[in-house]
């Protein structure tokens, strides 16, 4: 029995060998820290003491209005952000492919540039656009005799923020989907054209299925990203007004680095992680990629 096991393992040795180096670094810098973080979530840290808290942190969080509000806000952002990212980046990458190669590069660079632009500039530009008193958008509205709009109001802030985040995060998915597009053999399209397929037909029948693995990737990673939004929200709305845009990460950061309660912060991280894992698992199920071509 054991011998058979070893035999099998020997046959599978290349699987392990190729993944070993990554696994080593991963164990050091991810696995151990994750386990440590989970452990810490069962402790209570205050200014004066730290002690075992069992599930105390979790209980307290699940009863905390502000935390629950942040969960709701975060989910709202995810629901708006992820489908929008998927649809827009997919359509955009297809349309970019219609241009000549040179122009393709230009467009991809353009969409990706926000990723390398200082976040201060990005915030500034949006403040210029959205500034209630002197901003460009309200100025344009004024030309048409429309009242000024407060884009960061209690009701609108979360939508505005999501739109802003979209503009700076489409670059990555577009690059990725474009790369995946490049991996689809042109011959497939030629065969379809011979069969008389229209533009849309071609893309729905060929592009979509062939890009499933990559689309799954974009879905999962943009979900994770949306759940972990922090920096831009901090600069834009600081979670306000009155908690309208407070995300889980915002609270986590406050708890860990301002209040010094790492235990509670890590408990938030664990809860967040569990939520994401569930959603990601559903996404994997929905976009199964076991079909080989």
């Amino acid at each position: 029995m054991l011998k058979r096991e070893f035999n099998l393992l020997y046959k599978e040795r290349y699987g392990f060998l190729f993944v070993a180096p990554a696994l080593l670094f991963f164990a050091l810098f991810y696995l151990y820290p994750i386990l440590d973080a989970i452990k810490v979530s069962f402790y209570k840290y205050t200014y004066y003491s730290s002690g075992w808290a069992g599930i105390g942190n979790y209980q307290s969080l699940l009863q905390d209005d502000v935390f629950l509000r942040s969960v709701k806000n975060t989910l709202l952002i995810v629901i708006m952000f992820v489908p929008a990212t998927l649809i827009i980046s997919f359509i955009l990458s297809i349309f970019i492919s219609l241009f000549r190669t040179r122009l393709q590069s230009v467009f991809k660079a353009v969409f990706y540039i926000p990723a390398v632009t200082s976040i201060v500039s990005i915030t500034f530009m949006w403040q210029y656009l959205l500034n209630y008193d002197f901003g460009l958008l309200n100025f344009l509205l004024g030309l048409f005799d429309i009242d000024k709009v407060n884009f960061l109001s209690y009701d609108r802030a979360i939508v505005t923020t999501t739109v802003v985040v979209l503009t700076i995060s489409l670059g990555g998915p577009i690059v990725i989907l474009s790369a995946a597009l490049g991996g689809i053999p042109v011959s497939y399209y030629e065969a379809a054209e011979l069969d008389g397929a229209s533009f849309w037909r071609k893309h729905i029948r060929i592009t979509l299925p062939m890009m499933k693995p990559t689309i799954l990737f974009v879905a999962v990673t943009s979900t994770i990203g949306a759940f972990q939004l922090f920096a831009i929200i901090l600069l834009f709305t600081a979670g306000g007004p009155n908690y309208a845009t407070t995300t889980i990460l915002l609270l986590l950061y406050q708890e860990a680095f301002v209040n010094g309660d790492y235990g509670r912060a890590n408990a938030m991280a664990v809860i967040l992680s569990i939520i994401i894992v569930i959603i990601a698992w559903l996404q994997f199920k929905f976009l199964r990629t076991d079909i080989e071509y």
């Binding site: 599978e12 699987g15 991963f26 973080a37 986590l252 992680s273 894992v277």
Partner: peptide
């Protein structure tokens, strides 16, 4: 290895990798 080599631990290892992305960096 995780994409093309068929070994039983592969799926498990892959899920650990993906799962690790769900914990926010600030906590780590």
């Amino acid at each position: 290895s995780l994409a093309k080599i068929n070994f039983r631990a592969g799926k498990f290892i892959f899920s650990i990798f993906v799962g690790s992305m769900t914990i926010p960096g600030a906590a780590l």
